[in-house]
């Protein structure tokens, strides 16, 4: 999976730690998702989508 999380986060001017706090995950976890080391579960993906006000498929896409 690929994602645009890093770009979306940058647009909001949030640090990884700030985004992690809103998603209730650690900064390292945000980094792992952004760099593609981990694909989030559906509940977490929905949470991310809700936070940025976008549909999941606009944030996450297949390689």
């Amino acid at each position: 999976m690929e994602n645009t999380l890093k770009t979306l986060r940058a647009e909001q001017g949030w640090s990884q730690a700030a985004l992690g706090e809103q998603l209730e995950i650690s900064r390292q976890s945000v980094n792992a998702i952004e760099t593609g080391r981990y694909d989030p579960s559906l509940p977490l993906a929905f949470k991310i989508a809700r936070l940025f006000g976008k549909p999941i498929e606009e944030i996450f896409s297949e390689d």
Binding site: I25, S26, Q28, S29, A32, Y38, P40, S41
Partner: peptide, 9 residues
Amino acid sequence: EVDEVARHF
């Protein structure tokens, strides 16, 4: 207690 990403690793 830890988040799902950390739990995975």
